[in-house]
């Protein structure tokens, strides 16, 4: 059974691993000079990265984010739906191997290959980007590069891409099994995977490790402050390098959650144009004088690995659950 699975899978596997190898070579060539630069420049590295290295940084990020989706669509979704579409499952399921074993072998080999491909890609990209990541965590400017904990970079670093790939692969297989049409299964896999990848950082990841909380006074000379939604919401930018801010709340003098008072908006109101800087500072000082403070909840940079392992567990758990579903479904498939 392993032979047949490999025989059917080897072309796709060769294409993927050739691409991974090409990427790894590119990174291996350009990586050392970036590491040297970090050794001399430290956190100010972020201002000295060449534009070609900047391109590599973003390309690497996109590739690691894309690999699990590509695996789900092109390895997972067709794995069984193509057999069902062409009727070859009649041939396969009437040999001396049960459907369950047939499925187990295909899932086992495919998921292992998927995790290997995504793991190698993530390893190469994480290694290449580590000087920039360290510079950002060390206090370097974050307007060009993402902290490792930022939702964009988090899914492209460390071990989570392996779990994402395993999940995307089994998701593709499960959808192919249910939909039974290769193209439709591929499209659905992409949509569902993207939806999960957007939902997890929004609603689940912030709670996977205990966050830190800090209360920042509202004052003109303190942490930078910006306003949103017509002065109904205040956003502070405290100096916590590499942190991922998950929520911001305003507290009143009694220390309770409270909306920003309307007096603040009235204070900022002008006949025309934006308020002047002096006016803004004066209004902030007024608000601060009324006892208002800003509470910031964030995941500190030190929680990176705790979050990585927790999310890896989450996605592997989802992949296992989908595997169970596939095993159940294939036995009643007619």
């Amino acid at each position: 059974m392993i032979w047949l699975t490999w025989r059917q899978f080897r072309t796709q596997a060769a294409v993927m691993f050739a691409a991974v190898a090409a990427l790894a070579v590119t990174l291996a060539v350009t990586g050392p000079q970036l590491a040297d630069l970090y050794r001399t420049a430290g956190s100010s590295l972020v201002d000295q990265v060449s534009s070609s290295d900047q391109t590599v940084y973003y390309t690497g990020l996109l590739v690691v984010l894309a690999v699990p989706a590509v695996i789900g669509m092109f390895w997972g979704a067709p794995l069984i739906s193509r057999e069902l579409e062409t009727g070859t499952h009649y041939l396969a399921w009437n040999q001396g191997v049960t459907r369950t074993r047939w499925l187990a072998t295909k899932l086992g080999l495919g998921a292992t290959a998927a995790m290997t491909a995504a793991g190698l890609t993530s390893l190469a990209v994480s290694w290449w980007s580590s000087p920039i990541d360290r510079a950002v965590n060390g206090g370097g400017a974050t307007d060009t590069y993402f902290p490792r904990l930022d939702p964009v970079a988090f899914a492209a670093r460390g071990v989570v891409p392996m779990a994402h790939a395993a999940f995307a692969f089994v998701l593709g297989v499960a959808l192919g099994l249910v939909i039974r049409r290769t193209l439709a299964a591929m499209a659905t896999t992409l949509v569902v995977y993207a939806a999960v990848q957007i939902s997890v950082p929004l609603w689940i990841r912030p709670y996977l490790a205990a966050p830190d909380r800090t209360t920042v006074p509202i004052e003109p000379d303190g942490a930078p402050i910006s306003i949103q939604e017509g002065a109904k919401q205040i956003v502070t930018h405290p100096e916590v390098p590499g942190a991922w801010v998950t929520s911001q709340q305003t507290l009143n003098a009694a220390g309770q959650l409270a909306p920003v008072p309307s007096s603040f908006a009235d204070c900022l109101h002008t006949e025309s144009g934006p308020p002047t800087l002096q006016q803004f500072d004066r209004c902030l000082a007024d608000l601060g004088a009324q006892g208002y403070q800003q509470q910031v909840t964030y995941q500190p940079a030190g929680n990176f690995w705790a979050l990585q392992w927790a999310e890896t567990g989450l996605y592997l758990g989802l992949a296992l659950a989908l595997t169970g579903f596939c095993a159940w479904w294939i036995r009643r498939l007619t």
Binding site: Q8, T86, G87, T88, Y90, L91, W93, N94, Q95, G96, V97, T98, R99
Partner: peptide, 20 residues
């Protein structure tokens, strides 16, 4: 099709004789 032994006893050539 309840197990490998049972599968070994029965050969099946499906409609339109699918092959890879």
């Amino acid at each position: 099709a309840t197990g490998p032994n049972q599968l070994a006893k029965v050969g099946f050539v499906a409609q339109d004789t699918p092959t890879y």
